[in-house]
Amino acid sequence: PREAYIVTIEKGKPGQTVTWYQLRADHPKPDSLISEHPTAQEAMDAKKRYED
Rank of each mutant, 00 (worst) to 15 (best):
P1A: 13
P1N: 14
P1D: 09
R2M: 10
R2N: 09
E3Q: 15
E3G: 14
E3A: 14
A4E: 01
A4W: 09
A4L: 14
Y5T: 05
Y5C: 05
Y5P: 00
Y5V: 05
Y5H: 07
Y5E: 02
I6A: 00
I6K: 00
T8K: 15
I9E: 04
I9A: 05
I9T: 07
E10P: 05
E10V: 13
K11R: 12
K11E: 05
K11M: 07
K11F: 07
K11C: 12
G12F: 04
G12Y: 05
K13F: 12
K13E: 15
K13W: 12
P14E: 12
P14R: 08
P14S: 08
P14H: 10
G15A: 05
G15R: 03
G15V: 03
Q16W: 10
Q16T: 09
Q16G: 10
Q16Y: 11
T17W: 11
T17Y: 11
T17N: 07
T17Q: 11
T17P: 07
V18G: 06
V18I: 12
V18Y: 09
T19Y: 08
W20E: 04
W20H: 05
W20Y: 11
W20F: 08
Y21H: 04
Y21C: 02
Q22F: 02
Q22H: 03
Q22S: 03
Q22R: 00
Q22N: 01
Q22A: 04
Q22G: 02
Q22M: 02
L23I: 06
L23P: 00
L23F: 02
L23W: 01
R24M: 14
R24T: 05
R24Y: 15
R24I: 12
R24F: 14
R24Q: 03
R24D: 02
R24V: 10
A25V: 14
A25W: 04
D26Q: 08
D26C: 14
D26L: 12
H27G: 06
P28M: 07
P28Q: 07
P28N: 08
P28E: 07
P28C: 08
K29N: 11
K29T: 14
K29M: 14
P30L: 09
D31F: 15
D31E: 09
D31Y: 15
D31H: 13
D31I: 03
S32D: 04
S32K: 12
S32T: 15
L33V: 13
L33S: 02
L33N: 02
I34V: 09
I34L: 08
I34H: 03
S35D: 01
S35K: 01
S35N: 02
S35L: 00
E36H: 02
E36L: 04
E36C: 11
E36S: 05
H37F: 08
H37E: 01
H37I: 00
P38K: 13
P38C: 10
P38W: 06
T39E: 04
T39N: 10
A40W: 15
A40N: 10
Q41D: 10
Q41A: 13
Q41H: 09
Q41K: 13
A43S: 02
A43N: 00
A43R: 00
A43P: 01
M44H: 10
M44Y: 12
M44G: 05
M44I: 12
D45N: 10
D45K: 11
D45V: 11
A46G: 03
A46N: 03
K47S: 02
K47Y: 05
K47N: 01
K48V: 10
K48C: 08
K48H: 10
R49G: 05
Y50S: 02
Y50G: 02
Y50E: 02
Y50R: 03
Y50D: 01
Y50F: 12
E51S: 07
E51Y: 07
E51H: 07
E51F: 06
E51R: 06
E51M: 13
D52T: 15
